[in-house]
Write a protein that binds this DNA or RNA. Structure first.
Lengths: 340, 340
DNA sequence: AGAGACTTCCAAAGCGCTTTGGCTAATTTG
DNA sequence: CAAATTAGCCAAAGCGCTTTGGAAGTCTCT
């Protein structure tokens, strides 16, 4: 059932039927009702390919997926996707994943924009002065950044959590508990979120005249093994930290293992706080010692990003609105006063 | 730069240019060279929307993503996706994720097929007599199943690992080591892979006159917490198992925690083997006691599925070829002879 | 030399929608 | 009451490809 048949059936022109269905004003309400009714009865669905060709709109959102033999997709991605799906499901919005060589995403961005494959894209894990931002900005495709970048002469729409505030709170708590030697096991410090987190911890320490020395910062990709290694190196130093703030639950697993291997205890010898993106399959309250966390659901963020992308596509949202979500600090058994 | 302009430039018809570019035989090789050359020089790329409308082919593969407030996307998905991207990247093949209500995926399958949104789909985590299989089979869209189903009167193309064989081997090893009371902490037993794994363990036990009683099988979604709970319940029974086979590393984390909480040790009191899908961020050799595993890279499977989908789309692969990959049994410190 | 078979190309008709530019009849306005 | 709007509809022209159905020219064979 296509438009031609439907309009013939109604003894109307394709123009009128099309307009009736798409909510244009220049059609009699009575006629519109007839059309909509007939369309529903006959299960008419406009052919998306034809519509695409005519309008240049695809009704899909895109994501350029960096891949490569040495590249692992962040496990957080799947949670973000769940959220995105939560929104998209209800709006028949599909997501196009365009795998790209991690060393050359630009080609892929250009391709999907030139081909008009998607109406909008989102960008995740941005870095300061991230080239992708500049690119999509000049290419003129609607976009939203999940996270933040820095150092541009233009504003852009984003959704981010208050990483600095969260880690500031966490560190401040530890300082208040008497800890003087804090360490930070961070994610890749070329990404903005990691920079913000470090800044948060640094600010909290500075407020008490303390500092976060180079020695006490590890910046690694977030695997259990890297968490373990970082923790061991920190804890085997001369004056080991008495508290660690850690950027992910997965790394925290490694930290816990290292602490055990060294015959230490949490929170007796070491206080530990980690950031929790809320994985359904690994929960901080189930750690050997319930883990204190800064918590923010990445799934909710996914849903919100989808919602805002849809709004931008339909013109409901404009401009460079930045949105920063607060982060909860949830204190559990893994923190205690500094050892004497 | 579109076809019209290009053909005008070459003083050829659109027909000839189109055919030259698409490798049709009825065009002089000399002409073809000229055309291809000019196309390259001017950076001509056929408009995919137009091509889609004309041919009905989208050049994309699809996946219907079950979502819902109570539905969590399997973290394995991201690894599979990495593999898919490895192949797709090199072939400019995009992946369309169509989020669907987990209780009604059929509508979405029908939509993407009717709209010809994708040229092929893959289906994962199939169950016996899975409705999705019957559906895509009748809808006539090329597909590949990652995993296996059972109980159909038709064959279908799939890629699966030898779950039964793997768990048979694992259980056989444990039996050989003198274990008489084995338990299985499995995934959702409505999915075929879990059934196969149970079958494998059962067969190994039966070969030695042992059985895997109802009591010794837990079938749960694969979270750390569920692994912990299942292990505790098993180990707190009258005659607790001396060996556990576990369907995922994440659950194994929970098992290890439970063992510790109960004051037991691995492998002294309990031998443990788990299936490892090869996550980059959690490796069995880094468990407190290095974990014995049945190993199979889900990422490689993703790449292979993409490759086969592409082959089916282009007609290189036909029929209902099933492909079963062997699984490695990797023995590490977590298994030992049965306690006396 | 004429019939048949290739080879190589082309004009034009789709694919199914949106949108432009009217046209008619009804309504409002001075 | 004539002129100017407006409401409501339509025909036709795209969007940029692929593909059908020739047509003209070149070879081959008897």
């Amino acid at each position: 059932m296509n438009l031609k048949q439907l309009s013939h059936m109604l003894s109307l022109s394709q123009t009128t039927v099309s307009r009736a269905l798409n909510g244009y004003p220049e059609v009699n309400e009575e006629t519109r009702r007839r059309v909509i009714d007939a369309a529903k009865r006959h299960g008419y669905r406009p052919n998306p390919s034809a519509r695409r060709l005519a309008t240049g709109k695809s009704g899909m959102i895109g994501y350029v997926l960096p891949t490569g033999a040495a590249v692992d997709i962040d496990p957080h991605f799947v949670e973000f996707l769940s959220g995105l799906g939560d929104y998209a499901r209800a709006h028949e919005l599909d997501l196009v994943l365009s795998p790209a060589d991690a060393d050359d995403e630009e080609t892929t961005y250009r391709r999907i924009v030139a081909n008009r494959q998607v109406d909008a894209v989102y960008i995740s894990s941005p870095r300061p002065a991230d080239k992708r931002l500049a690119l999509v900005n000049t290419l003129g495709i609607p976009f939203i950044v999940h996270g933040r970048s820095e150092g541009f002469d233009f504003d852009y729409p984003y959704l981010d959590i208050d990483n600095e505030g969260a880690f500031h709170e966490a560190a401040r708590l530890l300082v208040q508990l008497g800890h003087k030697r804090l360490a930070l096991i961070n994610g890749n410090d070329r990404e903005t979120f990691a920079i913000h987190r470090e800044r948060g911890v640094g600010r909290a320490l500075a407020a008490s005249g303390l500092t976060l020395g180079e020695r006490h910062i590890r910046s690694v990709t977030m695997t259990e093994e890297n968490g373990y290694r970082a923790a061991r190196r920190l804890l085997e130093e001369n004056e080991p930290p008495t508290a660690i703030v850690c950027s992910s639950l997965i790394m925290a697993l490694g930290v816990v293992r290292a602490v055990r291997d060294l015959g230490l205890t949490i929170p007796g010898d070491l206080s530990l706080v980690a950031h929790d993106d809320v994985f359904p399959w690994l929960r901080p309250e189930n750690f050997p010692v319930p883990l204190s966390t800064t918590r923010s659901s990445i799934r909710l963020a996914g849903a919100r990003v989808a919602e805002r992308l849809a709004a931008r596509i339909s013109g409901l949202e404009e401009g460079a609105r930045g949105e920063v979500w607060p982060v909860d600090l949830v204190v559990r058994g893994s923190v205690a006063g500094a050892p004497l």
